[in-house]
């Protein structure tokens, strides 16, 4: 009934060290950076920049802005590399700095940015080529973003990191510096809130305009085993 955990497992590998290719571990690279090796830091940047920009894009929805924030994140990581505890994992530490930067930025520009995000979202997020109907995919994404907007920030952050970025709950706990039990509780609350708003908005739409059909209208692979 439930989907396999493969995505989560694959993405978890990106925060673990050493990387799947058998390269140098994060800890060794950090050690080298501390000794003044710029190339080692370049390796860390290249290792994490894609994932970091993806996460930042979830918050700011602007490619250039996400890029700027990613640069700022790496710069701060470099400046604070001496403060990093080598007994801990580097990935969550980096993402904590990046997520905090993204959230801070959003808080500062919240009122101005959200309407801007939704007005620019079509140009900033090109349609997924694998999708059968790109317009439907864009509608779905826009609708999801509207629903996410209605969720309080500390729930939304957990939901975005878990369900859109596939971080595990333990990784989110490390990124947000909270206990895993707290993250699981927030995740459950966030999904419930998302469901409430999503269901209400779907009910308010005309039956033919539903972005996403409710269960029962088509076969679902999520049914509880009975």
């Amino acid at each position: 009934m439930a989907r396999p955990h493969t995505m989560s497992e694959i993405d978890t590998q990106s925060l673990e060290s050493p990387p799947p290719g058998g390269g140098v571990s994060d800890a060794r690279l950090v050690e080298a950076v501390r000794k003044g090796d710029h190339d080692a830091f370049g390796e860390l940047v290249k290792r994490y920049e894609g994932r970091l920009m993806s996460v930042l894009l979830r918050f700011v929805r602007d490619r250039e802005l996400a890029r700027d924030l990613a640069q700022e994140t790496f710069l701060r990581v470099y400046e604070r590399i001496e403060q990093f505890d080598p007994s801990r994992r580097f990935g969550p530490w980096l993402f904590r700095i990046g997520v905090n930067l993204g959230l801070d930025y959003m808080r500062k520009r919240k009122r101005r940015l959200w309407p801007l995000l939704f007005s620019e979202s079509r140009s900033e997020t090109p349609p997924d080529p694998s999708s059968s109907d790109p317009r439907q995919q864009l509608d779905l994404e826009q609708e999801v973003r509207h629903v996410l907007e209605g969720i309080p920030e500390h729930y939304r952050t957990v939901l975005v990191l878990r369900d859109l970025e596939n971080f595990s709950t333990s990784e989110i706990a490390a990124i947000l510096n909270r206990k895993e039990a707290t993250i699981r509780w927030r995740l459950a609350e966030a999904r419930t809130k998302f469901k409430q708003i999503w269901t209400r908005r779907q009910a308010e739409r005309k039956p033919g305009d539903q972005v996403f059909p409710l269960p029962g209208s088509e076969e679902s692979d999520h049914d509880v085993d009975e």
Partner: peptide
Amino acid sequence: LQSSQQALEQSRGTAVVVS
């Protein structure tokens, strides 16, 4: 919950492609 969760998961693809 299944419906909303499915929508959430289907909307995840594009940001990664962009990055």
